[in-house]
Simulated scan of single mutants.
Amino acid sequence: MAQPTTLVATSLVALGGGTGAVLRYHLGRAVGALFPTAALAFPYATLTANVVGSLCMGLLAGWLARYGSAEAEGWRLLLGVGLLGGFTTFSSFSLEVMLLWERGAPGLAALYAIVSVAAGVAGLFLGLIVMRMAA
């Protein structure tokens, strides 16, 4: 199969992105329902979305590197660009760092930023390692 047409590629990204955004929304609701006071004090839902999304991106990248071909481009667009792009929340992350800082909690803002980036990168590496070991 050749590369997807622009219309097909756009549709795959839109379908994945919409699904990822809906999943992110429900993750935020679930975290808020499970930990109502903790969710107000620290952005756990965003942190979780970014770490889980990074882990999944590592798994996907590892799978595509091992097994991917021209036919896998549709999966990359649907899952990587769309679903995981819609699910992870680095724009929300940036806003939450700034809000923590403005609320007078620069230490917590710095901690959140460091943990988010370090855990996200670690999740991606872990996903790649898992996929490489599975081969």
Rank of each mutant, 00 (worst) to 15 (best):
M1G: 14
M1L: 10
A2T: 05
Q3D: 15
L7F: 08
L7V: 05
A9Y: 01
S11G: 15
S11P: 06
L12Y: 15
V13Q: 01
L15C: 13
G16T: 04
G16D: 14
G17Q: 10
G17W: 14
G18D: 07
G18K: 06
T19G: 13
G20N: 03
G20K: 13
A21S: 07
V22A: 13
V22D: 07
V22R: 10
L23H: 07
R24S: 06
Y25R: 15
Y25L: 12
Y25N: 08
H26N: 09
H26F: 08
L27I: 14
G28K: 12
R29Q: 13
A30T: 12
V31C: 04
A33L: 05
L34D: 08
L34C: 08
P36R: 01
F42P: 00
P43C: 12
P43L: 09
A45T: 01
T46A: 10
T46P: 03
T46V: 09
L47D: 00
T48F: 12
A49I: 02
N50Y: 04
V52G: 04
V52E: 01
C56N: 01
C56Y: 06
C56W: 11
M57A: 05
G58A: 09
L59A: 02
L60W: 00
A61H: 07
A61R: 03
G62W: 02
W63R: 10
W63H: 10
W63Q: 08
L64R: 13
R66A: 11
G68R: 06
A70T: 12
A72T: 08
E73Y: 10
G74R: 10
W75D: 14
R76D: 14
R76N: 05
L77C: 01
L78N: 03
L78E: 05
L79V: 04
V81I: 04
V81Q: 06
G82Q: 03
G82C: 02
L83N: 08
G85H: 08
G85Y: 11
G86D: 07
T88F: 10
T89S: 09
T89Y: 02
F93H: 09
S94R: 05
L95V: 08
V97D: 13
M98L: 15
M98K: 12
M98E: 13
L99C: 09
L99T: 05
L99I: 15
L100T: 14
W101H: 10
E102P: 15
G104K: 03
A105Y: 03
A109M: 02
A110E: 03
A110T: 06
L111A: 02
Y112C: 05
Y112A: 06
Y112H: 04
A113T: 05
A113K: 07
S116E: 05
S116N: 15
S116I: 04
A118W: 01
V121W: 14
A122L: 14
G123Y: 10
F125T: 00
F125P: 11
F125D: 06
G127M: 14
L128Q: 04
L128T: 11
I129V: 12
M131R: 02
A135N: 15
